[in-house]
Write a protein that binds this DNA or RNA. Structure first.
Lengths: 244, 244
DNA sequence: GTCGTGTTGTGAAGCAGTTCACACGCGTAT
DNA sequence: ATACGCGTGTGAACTGCTTCACAACACGAC
């Protein structure tokens, strides 16, 4: 899904169209033709079924993953079964960069949240490549900064805000994230997923969403939430614990 | 404090001893002599009284701060007055790198948690410098990865663990952090500070700490906590919500 | 010293959010 | 069309943590 394919193309051309997607990744788009060709030699294509695990927390960080289609879920889970979703990574984005860059263990689990196509790039080949491409290193600095902002925002929300605040913040961040990819303000996540992102129970989330739905701030669909009026949500997310 | 000073030295030499401290920063230690001298021209020395604000969330990120002595508190606060401590940055460490590197607003407040000496480096001079020093860029990648791990760990704790788990995790992370700087397992923070790091009330933290103190896992001092036996804490931090 | 501010210690009451135990609806595979 | 599974909707009981309201103590300043 998402990758345009002309049915008259023979296999080699289909492959090159996937490479075109790789070329479009935020991280790789500024590479010169030579460097990109070199990168392509490192990249191995793979398809994943929904639910497949890509790596687990604690694994050695042997490879960088570039998402071509589908979404990858970054999550953690505690021994007693509870789990939390830290991020959802879509087409054009990168997964697993921290462990690849610093050589330490993976910080979280990564699984295919839908059927996925990915490129896998081995760390041993990729690290020297990054060192040889200062511009790419600067791109990674940008990426890491963005990740840090995302994660800091999460800490801030979870520590300082109550349920309505956290939920509102999560919805806002998700609309911003998906606004470019999707045209509208429809967020394709289940309530279960949202509850795991904000770290509160599915039931509580449901009740809050219904309260907002009755005010026409959101519309609830099957596996999706449509944000109708983002302003009151921004109001709630911006202020400390208070009204609704 | 912490900077060795010979009282017979005249001012210029005192300055150069402070530069020696700058030279020892994780980030700058690998620079060659030329580059370091260039960096020194950018760095302006400053002293801060405890409580002084260095920058606030939302400010433009105009400068990078290198801590020479004292500790800098990275925190956020909600409109209703609650606040959370995200990190405490000590001598030899860097503050404010994210906003400087990506040109966006500061993500949190930074204040002097004790009297501090710092070097301030202007973004307009520093950014081109980073670009001209690929090795420095790689250092920043390492730093950002470390920060991301620290912050991800916080999210994980706050979402998945209960009070004892979070407190234990916080203590462990703090002992690891300070183990190199300080010889022992004494953590120089008040219970108020810990409560803000963990995001729970001071009273609850106190009660939990007392319970552990009565088991001789920790000893409580004035403005400090001594970890006597880290193993049961690791046990508590490692498992999901359960026994004490 | 002794005053004052900041840190620590502790119990009682309250509440936000969880947990549990359901019922319903939609979508898809058979 | 029927059936199964997963997402959704909802109330009642429970609980971990907060809040409030103190008292006692340490330490630096005067």
């Amino acid at each position: 899904m998402g990758v345009p394919q002309d049915k008259t193309m023979e296999p080699r051309q289909v492959t090159s169209s996937k490479l075109a997607v790789l070329r479009g990744h935020q991280i790789f788009c500024d590479l010169d033709a030579n460097a990109f060709e070199q990168l392509c030699r490192y990249a191995k294509h793979a398809t994943l079924k929904r639910g497949a695990t890509i790596f687990s927390k604690g694994d050695p960080g042997n490879s960088l993953i570039a998402v071509i289609s589908g979404t990858v879920k970054i999550s953690i889970s505690s021994p007693d079964g509870r789990s939390a979703i830290l991020n959802l990574i879509g087409p054009g984005e990168i997964v697993g960069e921290v462990a690849v860059l610093d050589g330490q263990a993976r910080t979280a689990d990564a699984t295919a949240n839908s059927n996925c196509e990915i490129f896998v790039i081995d760390r041993r080949e990729f690290l020297p490549f990054v060192r040889s491409q200062p511009a790419l290193a600067m791109k990674f600095i940008e990426l890491l900064c963005a990740r840090l902002r995302w994660t800091s925002d999460q800490v801030e929300e979870v520590i300082l805000q109550d349920l309505p605040g956290r939920l509102a913040s999560a919805l806002i961040r998700l609309t911003e994230r998906h606004k470019v990819a999707q045209g509208g303000r429809t967020i394709a996540v289940t309530q279960q997923e949202i509850s795991e992102m904000v770290g509160m129970s599915r039931e509580s989330i449901n009740k809050q969403l219904r309260a907002w739905a009755s005010r026409n701030w959101v519309r609830l669909e099957h596996g999706a939430i449509v944000v109708l009026d983002i302003e009151p949500l921004q109001e709630i997310a911006g202020s400390g614990p208070d009204e609704n």
